[in-house]
């Protein structure tokens, strides 16, 4: 986790030291354009948070899935921590609309299938964001996160 956080922290330093539009833009009417990799980090963090909420909601609805899904929750938390330093507070809280509450299907098997499909989509999304990242180290971090999801899905108990 420390290596990931260090990469993300470096991203913030780079973004701020070169040109941080957030710091300059004081107009509330005009959304600030995030530096390219900060925007990538913001997207990644938002998607991970949404999915962690979906996992949490599913576990609450089906407590018997807790043991099965806890590794995914831990994984998403680790990824959030590694990205948190890279995302300015304003971008993390105000740039995106409030997430729509996750609707858990009534049947456990359906709920799990839907959740795992979303995990697969998050993996694909992190890979796509890694491709967009301008910093090579940050691309490696995002691709590693995606691969981590792939590993977790591969060993998920039935």
């Amino acid at each position: 986790m420390a290596a990931g956080a260090a990469v993300a922290a470096g991203l913030v330093v780079t973004a701020c030291s070169v040109d941080n539009p957030i710091a300059k833009d004081k107009s509330p009417q005009k959304p600030a354009a995030l530096a390219p990799d900060v925007a990538v980090a913001t997207s990644a963090l938002a998607e991970i948070k949404v999915l962690r909420a979906a996992v949490t909601t599913t576990v609450s609805r089906f407590p018997a899935t807790r043991a099965q899904l806890t590794p995914l929750l831990q994984l998403h938390r680790a990824h959030e921590v590694s990205l948190a330093d890279a995302v300015p507070a304003r971008a993390a809280s105000g740039a995106s609309p409030a997430p729509v509450p996750y609707a858990v299907p009534r049947k456990r098997d359906v709920a799990l299938s839907m959740l795992l499909a979303r995990e697969g989509r998050l993996h694909a999304s992190l890979d796509a964001l890694a491709l967009r990242a301008q910093s090579g180290d940050f691309a490696q971090l995002l691709a590693s996160m995606g691969a981590g999801i792939g590993q977790q899905l591969a060993v998920l108990p039935p």
């Binding site: 986790m1 990931g4 994984l75 680790a78 590693s144 996160m145 981590g148 591969a154």
Partner: peptide, 13 residues
């Protein structure tokens, strides 16, 4: 993982 490595949060990092 197919050869028994425990999943990692950051494989390859």
């Amino acid at each position: 993982v197919s050869f028994g490595v425990a999943p990692s949060s950051f494989p390859g990092l």
